[in-house]
Amino acid sequence: MVRILLAIILPPLGVFLQVGLGLQFWLNIILTLFGYVPGIIHAVWIILRR
Rank of each mutant, 00 (worst) to 15 (best):
I46R: 04
F34W: 13
F16C: 11
L21H: 10
P11Q: 06
L48R: 06
L31C: 06
I41D: 01
V44N: 00
N28R: 08
L48P: 00
L48V: 03
F16Q: 10
L21V: 08
L21R: 10
P38W: 00
Q18T: 10
F34N: 12
L10E: 03
G35N: 08
M1V: 08
Y36T: 14
Q24S: 06
L10G: 03
G35P: 02
G35Y: 05
Y36K: 11
V15T: 02
I40W: 00
G20K: 14
V19E: 13
R50V: 03
P12G: 11
N28Q: 09
F34P: 05
W26N: 13
L27A: 12
W26C: 12
Y36M: 13
V44K: 01
I46E: 04
L5M: 05
L21D: 08
P11T: 05
L17A: 12
L33N: 14
L48I: 03
N28P: 07
L48N: 02
A43V: 02
F34G: 14
L6K: 03
P38K: 04
F16W: 15
L23H: 07
I40D: 00
L10T: 06
W45A: 15
G20A: 13
L33D: 12
L17K: 11
L33W: 15
V37M: 06
F16P: 08
W26S: 14
P12N: 11
P12V: 10
V15P: 00
R3N: 06
L33P: 09
G14Y: 01
L31M: 09
W26Y: 15
L23G: 04
V19S: 11
M1L: 09
R3S: 05
M1G: 10
I29E: 11
H42V: 05
I29H: 12
L10M: 08
G22M: 11
L31Q: 02
V19G: 07
L23S: 09
G20F: 12
I8C: 07
G35K: 09
W26L: 15
I40C: 02
I40V: 13
